[in-house]
Amino acid sequence: MQVAEVSPRLEALRCRAEALARDTAQAESGFTAVKSEKDLQGLQGLLSRQQEMERAVSEILQGQLEELERAAAHLQELCPARLCPVSREVQGTLWAWAGLRELLQETRARVQQAGRLRHFFKDYLAMISWTEDTRAQIFSESPSSLPETPCEELERKIEGKLKEFEVLAALGQQLVSEEHYLSATIKERLEELQSMLGWVLVRWRAQRHQRDLGSKQEDRRDAESPSGASPTGQVSTEPR
């Protein structure tokens, strides 16, 4: 009775778990060519599918399978010297249940890893966009044209992005340490971003230095200008 109810559900869940594993791998494979955050939306439904399967197990199958386990143990007590047909059927279902639990555990780990991978590429794209915009801003403005307040604001943003990169690099290293098959791509993206951020930092410091140097030279000229000169630069010759 119990076996006839549980076995089809176990098989259905096994098929769903295998399909989820394939879909996760397919979604991850597209990350090598990701161009925008829209390209990452394929992973959003994977976690919900995993959670649905977990609920189906905990809310429906768990109690029935525990009852089957008790029934199997009871049958072993009744006929310890041999396996009756019902006992073999129950044991086969319990083996299928053990296999499903292992498959669900692997799928859960894979989906969670895919979530971390999505987070990595999402933050990577945001930082690449910011870096390109900032580089264009630095190219378009001369040192003397940068007011003090925007300079300080940009300085804070650059420092903030460098800290964000450290967090992103740690996440990337975690994925690499897990021997993800996209490890080479992750390393390439981190090296690319590190190079771009390094360029922004060096270029900005050079531009800031030129600006500060220009300000000092201007202040020196103002200090050296004759205080007694008329607006036209000539000494007054009016009779005393």
Score class of each variant (00 low, 15 high):
residue 57 V to N: 08
residue 63 G to V: 04
residue 76 Q to L: 13
residue 39 D to E: 09
residue 100 L to T: 05
residue 90 V to Y: 02
residue 118 R to W: 04
residue 91 Q to R: 12
residue 29 S to Y: 03
residue 87 S to C: 09
residue 102 E to K: 13
residue 109 A to R: 15
residue 85 P to Y: 08
residue 44 Q to D: 15
residue 120 F to I: 06
residue 17 A to D: 02
residue 121 F to M: 10
residue 33 A to I: 01
residue 10 L to M: 03
residue 30 G to R: 11
residue 102 E to G: 13
residue 67 E to T: 11
residue 90 V to M: 11
residue 115 G to K: 01
residue 62 Q to N: 09
residue 24 T to K: 00
residue 88 R to K: 15
residue 87 S to L: 15
residue 39 D to I: 05
residue 36 S to F: 07
residue 111 V to C: 02
residue 47 L to V: 13
residue 22 R to A: 11
residue 28 E to K: 04
residue 94 L to V: 05
residue 10 L to Y: 01
residue 41 Q to G: 13
residue 34 V to K: 04
residue 73 A to G: 05
residue 114 A to D: 01
residue 117 L to P: 01
residue 63 G to P: 04
residue 43 L to S: 09
residue 63 G to F: 01
residue 50 Q to D: 12
residue 77 E to R: 10
residue 66 E to Y: 01
residue 118 R to V: 07
residue 125 L to V: 06
residue 19 A to W: 00
residue 77 E to M: 06
residue 105 Q to S: 15
residue 86 V to K: 08
residue 48 S to I: 12
residue 38 K to I: 08
residue 114 A to Q: 02
residue 88 R to L: 15
residue 16 R to Y: 00
residue 32 T to K: 07
residue 41 Q to V: 12
residue 19 A to Y: 00
residue 66 E to R: 10
residue 88 R to Q: 13
residue 68 L to D: 02
residue 26 Q to M: 06
residue 97 W to D: 09
residue 16 R to M: 07
residue 21 A to V: 06
residue 34 V to T: 11
residue 72 A to V: 07
residue 55 R to G: 08
residue 18 E to F: 00
residue 76 Q to T: 07
residue 70 R to A: 13
residue 16 R to N: 02
residue 117 L to H: 01
residue 17 A to V: 12
residue 41 Q to M: 11
